[in-house]
């Protein structure tokens, strides 16, 4: 059962809430208590835009059991237009259309299920545009 920890991540998973360092402007996604760049402990909460580009990617052919019915699927490191970085599965895109440098849009999708009777778990995915 992953429900309690799932709920804590909802602001990030559902609406891309990130922390922008008040001192050095570095954007942490997810938010942190200490800025990894300047050690500041003061942040503003921001919402990342839904636009970004692929920095690198892979196509998962062999997954853990929980994703096995979805293979093959793409996963990419995305840089958003604010310069924040995150990792997301690729949705609605032909595998041959996934490449470094491609522009993507972040969308809201179901990511996984907690077994056949547990909760549905949602989050962000990226679509190549």
């Amino acid at each position: 059962m992953i429900t309690p920890k799932y709920v804590r991540e909802i602001p990030q998973r559902y609406r891309l809430e990130a922390a922008k360092c008040k001192n050095c402007s570095y954007i942490s996604f997810p938010p942190r208590l200490v800025c990894p760049k300047c050690k500041s402990r003061s942040f503003d909460t921001i919402r990342l835009s839904d636009e970004g580009k692929i920095l690198t990617f892979t196509i998962i052919r062999v997954s853990s059991d929980i994703f096995s019915h979805q293979t093959p699927y793409g996963v990419a490191v995305i840089e958003t237009s604010e310069g924040a970085k995150l990792m997301a599965m690729i949705a609605d895109t032909k595998i041959e259309d996934i490449a470094i440098g491609k522009k993507v849009k972040l969308i809201f999708r179901k990511i996984r299920d907690e077994g056949v009777s547990g909760i549905h778990c949602y989050g962000y995915k990226a679509v190549v545009i």
Binding site: H69, Q70, M89, A91, D92, I107, F108, R109, K110, I111, H120, Y122, K125
Partner: peptide
């Protein structure tokens, strides 16, 4: 619908 789509994700996108 894709494997990652359901009534909720469709409702979210339409509402956005």
């Amino acid at each position: 619908p894709g494997l990652d789509e359901d009534t909720i994700t469709i409702a979210v996108q339409a509402s956005k």
